[in-house]
């Protein structure tokens, strides 16, 4: 059973639907006991990192997330709250990944939000097993996690190279949306399920 953490994070339904398409059982929950006992945990998220942090705090979930030892996957803002801090609302985050979340500077060749399909490279993790460099995945974000020793895949938007995916011990994160990334995304979710 996978626990999808439910904390007003916007469209968590797409993540649930994606697991359903893969025939994987899941539960939407904000109950610390259910989350601790789950085989795996997904932390979804859209919107602002500062609001996501406030919602997680209000539900008392931050120490729960920190204490998890099973595989955890943060998606988009769910990844960002696992970083050290975010410029979005200037907020200190949970600090699992050694990465900072910064705002993209718009330019002629790099519009903000970074929206659409972009290629990832330097894929190096069980989570991305079977995914070739140059594979396209779907991104929607205005803030990005910097490169760091936890980076397991990179992506470029304009002049900025950033972490497309991160891993630290049992924690994984994708800045892109595997649940919206067609068959490549399904492959990555399947990898996560079988970790």
């Amino acid at each position: 059973m996978i626990a999808i953490i439910d904390y007003n994070a916007g469209n968590i339904k797409s993540v649930a639907n994606a697991l359903e398409r893969l025939g994987c059982s899941y539960t939407l929950t904000s109950d610390p006991e259910v989350i601790r006992k789950a085989e795996k945990v997904i932390l979804p998220g859209v919107g602002a990192a500062s609001e996501a942090m406030a919602d997680l705090e209000a539900k008392g979930l931050i120490p729960v997330i920190r204490s998890l030892r099973q595989p955890v996957l943060g998606i988009c803002v769910g990844l960002q709250v696992l970083c050290r801090d975010s410029e979005e609302g200037d907020v200190r985050c949970i600090g699992i990944f050694d990465s900072h979340v910064r705002r993209f500077q718009p330019s002629a060749e790099a519009k903000v939000p970074h929206m659409g399909w972009n290629a990832i490279g330097n894929c190096d993790s069980k989570l991305l097993k079977g995914i070739d460099g140059g594979s396209f995945v779907y991104f929607v974000h205005s803030y990005y996690p910097t490169l760091c020793p936890d980076t397991i895949a990179t992506c470029r938007h304009g002049r900025e190279m950033f972490s497309a995916a991160l891993k630290y011990e049992n924690f994984y994160g994708t800045q892109f949306h595997p649940e919206k990334s067609g068959s490549i995304g399904e492959h990555i979710l399947r990898n996560f399920i079988s970790l």
Partner: peptide, 8 residues
Amino acid sequence: ISSVINIP
């Protein structure tokens, strides 16, 4: 649509 389609 949301339950079937895996793109945005």
